[in-house]
Simulated scan of single mutants.
Amino acid sequence: MKHIISKACKVLFISATVASLSVFAAPEDLVRSSIQAAIPQYPIESIKLHEGTGLYVVSLGGGPVLHVSTDGKSFIAGDVYRVETNGIVNETELAKIQQVEDMPLDQMVVYPAKGEEKAHISVFTDVDCGYCRMLHKEVTALNEKGITVRYLGFPRAGTGSAAHAKLISIWCSDDPQKWMTEAKLGKVVPTSNCENPIAEQYQLGQAVGVRGTPSIVLSNGKFIPGYLPADELAKELGL
């Protein structure tokens, strides 16, 4: 609790100047215009009203999550916590995780559940790390348990690295599922290039706290920073 209070004391509350905004503008438009004017270096990825606080949650590409007043004149850059009877919930962390959930499926490499989907996991992955390869061997077992596996690219050596190029080749191949598996068996993926989301996914991973691969976001909101076998992942999902 001392850590939380200390962190809360460091939350930066900044007044943003709103220029030439119509008094008839919708709150979301006020928020967008204000943040774009105040922090132009970060693109706005999403704006959602948080019913609990009455603030708008603004996700910035490569930047922090902000909680913004409805008039767009003030924002909090820091963690916001909700007090529950059985503890506290970090609303800012939940907002970051939601960005993963909002990533379009057609930008991931997806291995769908067999039959009815009971849950899904989103995995930030490299192709060369040993634990990423161990997890990939569990994909069939996960699918048979009704769990869809959704891969996002996270080259551990950063964008522009050889690992980044391998992930691009997988995403741009004629069969990303096949070549993801081949790459994790140590085989060479034919070089390919196209418009791809790997750099964006890498930035998203950094924003949600990925420090290594695999890092797993469960559909129930839990974040698993490392490898777990299929049976343990199923338990974490309540299956």
Rank of each mutant, 00 (worst) to 15 (best):
V18K: 08
A77E: 08
Q99T: 10
V18L: 10
Y111D: 07
S34D: 05
K137C: 05
Y151H: 04
L142A: 01
R150P: 04
L185G: 10
E101S: 14
S34L: 00
G87S: 14
K235V: 01
D71E: 03
T213E: 01
E93T: 07
N220K: 11
H67Q: 10
A234G: 02
N86W: 15
Y131N: 07
E101G: 09
V89W: 11
D29T: 11
D29A: 15
T125E: 00
M108H: 09
K137I: 00
T70S: 14
I88E: 14
E117P: 06
I35L: 06
V83R: 13
S6N: 15
T53I: 01
V83C: 10
P104T: 12
S34T: 04
K145Q: 05
F13Y: 13
A26M: 06
K10E: 13
S15P: 09
K73F: 02
K222S: 13
E236M: 03
P190E: 14
E45G: 07
V80N: 03
Y42L: 08
Y151T: 01
V149H: 01
V210P: 00
L237H: 02
L60I: 13
R156G: 03
R150H: 06
R150Y: 05
P197V: 06
W179K: 03
I88D: 12
L135F: 04
L185S: 11
A119P: 08
R156N: 02
A230S: 11
T17F: 14
A8N: 12
K222E: 15
P104I: 12
I35M: 07
P229F: 07
N143R: 04
R150G: 03
T140P: 05
T53R: 01
V58R: 07
P155E: 02
G87W: 15
R211A: 10
K137G: 08
T85G: 10
V80G: 02
V189A: 12
L30W: 07
F124N: 02
I44D: 08
K2F: 11
V217A: 10
G153T: 00
S74F: 08
P104D: 14
P229H: 11
A95K: 02
G186N: 12
P64C: 06
V217P: 05
C172A: 06
A141M: 05
G221P: 06
R32H: 09
E28K: 03
R32Y: 09
V100R: 01
D71K: 03
D126L: 03
H164Q: 11
G146E: 01
T159A: 13
D102R: 12
K96A: 06
K114E: 15
M180I: 08
V208D: 03
E84V: 13
D231Q: 11
G130V: 08
A38Q: 11
A113T: 05
C172E: 01
K145G: 02
N220L: 08
Y227S: 05
E45R: 08
A157F: 14
I88F: 15
I168D: 00
S33N: 08
S69T: 13
D29P: 06
W179F: 13
I97W: 09
E144P: 01
L152V: 06
T191I: 13
S46D: 07
I147P: 00
K145N: 01
C9L: 15
Q201L: 10
K96V: 04
S59I: 10
W179L: 08
E93D: 12
Y227Q: 03
Y111V: 08
A8T: 12
V123R: 03
C194G: 11
V23H: 12
